[in-house]
Nucleic acid binder design. Structure first.
Lengths: 145, 145, 145, 145
DNA sequence: TTTT
DNA sequence: TTTT
């Protein structure tokens, strides 16, 4: 069991890239308000968590085409921790939510946008973005952004 | 809504520290197996996510007194992203799960261990651990480990 | 672990009652859209689940004072199954979600409404509603509506 | 969003049936301990919720083949409320969890058992069980047990 | 009995 | 770097 469920707003427009093999990847950051955190006068303490979200395949396309900065959504997914070696030789960690489902909460009638394996593959993009430049030896699910 | 629900095993014994004001903090790492990740022959890809967990107050005491490396538990909590300035001037991010509840899954009869505000405060420890050495200007909830 | 997380709309205005001892109870039904269920032409199959929600104490007051039919909310809580003996001697079951937190999703800026034990008790109402008429032998948490 | 996450034990061996078209359905009941509910001396109040679980397809087969009364599992799924007309003309409601994933928690090494659409269809059983006797006009997902 |  |  590895489940994350979030409701928040996009801090900026989502970015869509494509792997070398044409798989869409959408990334953005969710601002999730902290409970009991007042907005005014909080002693400089954070009032939200800024959580990186990654969507793949059809869900990436749907999010890239429909989301913009400021929109409120819910995200269901799993917590992924990747490690990589920094230039100074130390080990760094990146934590992201790999989204399985996204629901748009601002629209009047909302339908969940499901990701997953049954969905038809997206058409290959005209020009691959540079997500693929990390090379073929890195599995798509593990691409370091 | 900021909810994380995990089932996994401790990668090492938990550590308990105390803030200057005597509040207990327990930290450990959960190894959460990835779905569809085979153990043997996985091309060197990770088969688990290693997720840092933080418990406070009574829950910290209960976890510190009862958990050991290898035990399986479930954790319910929230995802917290803290940022701090590295020595080289760059900004670094730490993502942890602040646990609200922990359930011990190895024992025959398990009862959830609830954190929260209603619980009696733990007795102040004889000697404060060095968690407080980060100084008084940092709120307890935000201590960088 | 017994966790339910829902996003949906109220099918009607919430009802607030009080137990004999003055504890507020708020009940309503959430319409939660089913994934992949089209609205038009669904062969008479349901496109939503109608799920009874129960809030207690301060959370009951907040919900009773702020929610109306049609509003969209998220609910976090636990699934409770109560059984009772029907007049014909058979056993009947009622399943409800006992809410721990409610977040209002229509407002521009939303803050979660937390229930729980630390919250101050609500002022006793001028006139007790008939929730108390089920009598003193029934614990408040188990009142049959 | 309609999400249920439970940890509990089977109250009896699971039952596997098949629809007319050969789709496997597995049903059982999970006993989920209530928090803060003592076992001894609880004034006759329930110490657990007994929650009906339904699995479909490959997940149904896996559960039917591996689970027995008393085993501890985690379940992730959605809450489904079905209504039907009782013989006395009144409307009755059935609430079940439609499981998406089940994790076996007693075994030393546990792997989540995922349901879903990508899994290969099970071989048609030699003899259809009577789940199909509700007739072809009822969609498989809505079969009243 | 159901919401949009 | 952050949303409302």
């Amino acid at each position: 069991m590895n489940k994350a469920i979030l409701i928040g707003r996009l801090t900026r427009d989502p970015e869509v890239r494509y792997t070398q093999s044409g798989v869409a990847v959408c990334t953005f950051t969710l601002a999730v308000d902290r409970r009991f955190a007042r907005k005014e006068e909080n002693n400089g303490q954070p009032t939200a968590d800024f959580i990186p979200i990654v969507c793949w395949r059809k869900l990436a396309e749907v999010c890239g085409n429909n989301l913009v900065k400021g929109r409120r959504i819910s995200v269901e997914g799993r917590i992924q921790v990747r490690s990589y070696d920094a230039q100074d030789g130390s080990k760094r960690y990146v934590t992201e939510i790999i989204a399985d489902e996204v629901e748009f909460l601002d629209s009047r009638s909302s339908a969940p946008q499901a990701g997953g394996f049954g969905a038809p593959a997206p058409a290959a993009p005209q020009q691959s973005a540079d997500a693929g430049s990390f090379g073929p030896s890195i599995p798509e699910e593990e691409i370091p952004f």
